[in-house]
Amino acid sequence: MPSSAKLTTQELTQLGVLLAVAIVLRIAENFFPYLLPLPGARLGLANILTIFVLINYGTNKAGLFLCTRILLVGILSTGLFTPGFLIGLGGAALSFVFMSIAVERNWFSPIGIGLLGAFMHNCGQIIMAVYLLNSIAVFSYLPLLIAIGIPTGLFTGTLANILLKRIKTT
C-alpha cells in the first residue's frame, strides 16, 4: 500500500475525478425519500469511493479525500453546520477511523470493509443525532439502521471490490 507523503500530479488528477464522482453520488442520495425521520440519514453510496481511495492511496490521502468531499458537499448541498451536515459528518468520521485501521491491519476484504464502514457510519450518525437533538430516544433507531446497513454495506463493499480489480491506479 502506498504511503508516500507527497501527492503526485497523477494522483491529484485521479483523486480529482474520483472526488467529483463521490460528490455526485452523495448529492444524488439526497433525492431519495427519507429513510428515517432523521436529517442526514443516508445510504452511504459515496463510501464505495472512500474504500477505493483508502485501499489504493492509503490513509493520509483518503483522509484528505474524505474531508474535501464532506466540505464540498456541505457547501453545495446540505449546508455547512446544519444538523444534517453534522450528523453526516459524525457518521463519516467514525466510519473512516474504523475503516482505515481495518485496511492498515488487513482485517477484511473490501466487502468486509464496506460492511464495517456502513455499520460504523450508522453508529456515528445516531450518536450525533442523540447529542444534537438531546434525546436518548433516538437510540431506538439503531437496530433498524444496523439492519439496513448490512445490505448497503455488502453492496458498497462489493462495488468497491469490483472497482479495485478493474481500475489500476499505479
Binding site: 482485517w107 477484511f108 476484504s109 466487502i111 468486509g112 460492511l115
Partner: peptide
C-alpha cells in the same frame, strides 16, 4: 469474501 468478512456479517446479523 474472506473468513473475517463472514464473521463480521454474522456479528452484525
Amino acid at each position: 469474501m474472506r473468513k473475517n468478512d463472514y464473521l463480521l456479517f454474522v456479528f452484525l446479523l
